[in-house]
Design a protein around this nucleic acid. Sequence first.
DNA 1: GTTGAAAAGTGCTGCGA
DNA 2: TCGCAGCACTTTTCAAC
Lengths: 158, 158
Amino acid sequence: MSHKKAQNLEIDNLDIQILSILMKNATTPYTEIAKDLIVSGGTIHVRMKKLEEMGVIKGANLEVDPQKLGYDITAFLGIYLEKGSQYNEAVKQLKEIKEIVELHYTTGEWSIFAKIVCHDTNHLREVLNENIQSVKGIQRTETFISLEESIKRQITLD
Amino acid sequence: MSHKKAQNLEIDNLDIQILSILMKNATTPYTEIAKDLIVSGGTIHVRMKKLEEMGVIKGANLEVDPQKLGYDITAFLGIYLEKGSQYNEAVKQLKEIKEIVELHYTTGEWSIFAKIVCHDTNHLREVLNENIQSVKGIQRTETFISLEESIKRQITLD
DNA sequence: GTTGAAAAGTGCTGCGA
DNA sequence: TCGCAGCACTTTTCAAC
């Protein structure tokens, strides 16, 4: 085991507060966070570095409105696999379908559960019939279309 | 109709390229984007302002690893409502449950489809039995637990 | 609409407590 | 381990093209 770093690898209350602020708005300046939490800007910097090294922070991404960019359909897919053991191979192929934005291996009726974003119903039909049905091991799928997204947020840290 | 702004409200190829870069990493400096796309930093700034005013950009959020913060369970919920007309009232109450991170009004078997993040199975049971079942209009729920999240990304702009 | 450079603000690093 | 101060970099603005 290496002794390069002897720093504190626990997450304390200050870390949680910093994360809470940045999870809502990733562009909040460190100086402003520092003022709010009554510590120095340098401290925020050190804590952020620690959280990044710990892998708690996976990145910062811009959230866009898919509809304003011409993506009108959000749908959920329950996917039946012939055998559970085909999961890894199926995922490898499904990763190539860029309309799939989220994919889980789940308990219950289906083996795979996916979220998919498309331009319109024609585009959705295309992806379902041509791309997804041709993945090896996939038996059939069930589709649920989102008519309204009422909640979209991150976990609230306490 | 107001004539305050006479600016171009179309999204062109340059806008898409800027968004593509920032959707992967929201902290990419404007100067670097400018260099990559061979325009000036000022142009990036003007385009971003336009996209924000158009509502294309909804914000920037820090992505964290829920497991490293003690949230081990991600689950999906299919919710049956007594009547579809109770949707708005139910959503109002469900918004108060902070473990729910995503909620959709969907076609198909269920009226509501939700994504939920909890500390452990006990926490999940608590939220299901105490918080969600007590929402007026909810008949019953079906739960799918995510055993593995294999894809998590944003739409690819073309 | 775009450019390039100047002004303002923020992030980063090392020294001191 | 934290805070302060100085330097480097980024964002923002603006006159000119």
